[in-house]
């Protein structure tokens, strides 16, 4: 898994030495601060290294910024979620507020869940949300959403297959 072929490796190295500075300032403009920019720039190259596909060296900056864009979006999504999470916590009565370390675990899990949910169709998402965190059974969901049991089961199966593709790869 960690075996990156040497040609690929040196291509990435060249990419890094030639364009890292540019990428970082491009990201600084998008993100508004240098720390996040440095983080995301780093992630871009980590992503490159973990990829199987060849580095496209014809238009290196376009290539880098395409990858960076995806990561920037992830970054903002994460920020949004953090914000929503903090809002949720702020409304909790003091004894119910989770401890700082479990908060972090929750947030990580939420980010993962959010990533999955984001790519589902709204109806599927709604059904899946009833099933997963809420723990309703398919017949209960069918009643709540006013659709047939078969439809709900199809929705849940779609969502699960999607989760599977996201986690273990393969196309669904």
């Amino acid at each position: 898994m960690s075996s990156v072929d040497p040609a690929q490796h040196s291509a990435i190295q060249t990419l890094y030495s030639d364009h890292h500075g540019w990428l970082q300032s491009w990201l600084r403009r998008k993100l508004g601060n240098a720390f996040d920019a440095a983080d995301v720039a780093q992630d871009v190259f980590i992503k490159l290294l973990s990829r199987q596909t060849r580095v496209d060296a014809r238009a290196p900056r376009a290539y880098l910024s395409t990858i960076a864009r995806g990561l920037v979006i992830d970054h903002w999504r994460r920020r949004e979620l953090e914000q929503a999470w903090l809002e949720t916590l702020a409304h909790l009565p003091a004894p119910e507020v989770p401890s700082p370390e479990s908060r972090l675990v929750f947030l990580e899990a939420l980010v993962a869940i959010d990533k999955v949910l984001d790519e589902l169709k709204p109806a599927v998402r709604q059904a899946f949300l009833c099933a997963q965190p809420e723990g309703l059974t398919c017949p209960q969901i069918a009643v709540r959403l006013g659709v047939s049991l078969a439809t709900v089961e199809r929705y849940i199966a779609t969502a699960l297959r999607h989760c599977y593709a996201l986690r273990f790869g393969g196309d669904v």
Binding site: E80, L81, Q83, A84, W85, E87, T88, L89, H91, L92, P98, V105, F106, A109, L110, A112, I113, D114, L117, L129, Q132, P133, E134, G135
Partner: peptide, 19 residues
């Protein structure tokens, strides 16, 4: 399903809805 199991359901739903 383990990600879902990590977060208390009510909190997860509230946070996702806020977002």
């Amino acid at each position: 399903q383990s990600d879902f199991a990590k977060v208390p359901p009510r909190l997860a739903i509230d946070a996702l809805q806020n977002a």
